[in-house]
Design a protein around this nucleic acid. Structure first.
Lengths: 152, 152
DNA sequence: TATGAATTGTTCTAAAATGAACAGTTAATA
DNA sequence: TATTAACTGTTCATTTTAGAACAATTCATA
């Protein structure tokens, strides 16, 4: 039980630690997205698409965890804005292949460079980190993320 | 410019790294909150209140970054459920002092112990971490969070 | 291959979250 | 002290997000 309490305490500390970063990330992303006429899911979808090149809507859902109705509506809006390309999958009339357009890439690049955006903020924070501190952080995050993924 | 690109790249890596944890945290918290009849802000408010004992609604806003209309409504619902105590501040008829009730504490304790909840998940992930790995993580998070806080 | 089950995405309705206008209170300063 | 400005919280209208029912397609297997 001593053991239990110890770990519970550490898990609470860890959760709070993530939360303190996370709430700031959300605050800044929400503002950045809104400033550029996007909702948070829309912005997230764009960043996922630039990373993965091509995804079906289903795969996009697995990566982002948004409800499929949210995805459907967000994707639809992005396509209407010409930021996303949507084309049927060969030999499959149910799934839909998504990819980012040039206009989408350009918008993300602009956002990326914005003074008060999340990238600039992280860029400053990251400058103070030692190389091994940085790599340990990524490694530990990966470990934790993998653990959380397993939960359903 | 070489320099710039390097840091930009690291900041993107870092952002993705946080996002991969964050999206899982949100997914699990959303489910846990819903299972216990709470919205995400409501759950977040309870956890903030258990940490800070007493807060005015204004202070709560500074800690959580929720819109004040969201706070007002969430707090109201929590008070109606008997999870939060709301009393006027002495010598100030504008501000309102908030504190968590016994019922609120009890609910959080229950949630805390739930099998598929965020605490248990973090508890498992944290077991594999070395002491110094854990402390370095907290330290680095703190550094990053402080940096982000400065952005407005 | 025919039939029922599972999958993928959309639509509609309801809930959650926000911004803006507002009311009441306190603070600043003339 | 009177008057204006700033602050704290609420309310209302709107936008955003999610859940549930649905349509269309594909898969499993009899």
């Amino acid at each position: 039980m001593e053991f239990e309490t110890l770990h519970t305490t550490r898990s609470v500390q860890l959760l709070r630690s993530f939360w303190n970063v996370q709430k700031n990330v959300m605050r800044i992303i929400q503002r950045t997205a809104a400033d550029n006429g996007l909702s948070v899911p829309q912005y997230t979808i764009l960043t996922a698409m630039i990373l993965h090149k091509e995804l079906t809507q289903k795969n996009l859902g697995e990566k982002t965890f948004f409800a499929k109705s949210t995805l459907s509506q967000s994707v639809d809006a992005l396509v209407r804005e010409g930021l996303l390309h949507r084309q049927p999958v060969e030999d499959n009339r149910r799934e839909i292949q998504l990819s980012i357009t040039e206009k989408g890439k350009k918008l993300l690049k602009t956002i990326h460079e914005q003074e008060d955006g999340i990238h600039m903020a992280f860029g400053e924070a990251v400058q103070d980190l030692e190389d091994d501190q940085f790599h340990n952080l990524l490694k530990t995050h990966l470990h934790i993320a993998q653990h959380l993924e397993e939960k359903e």
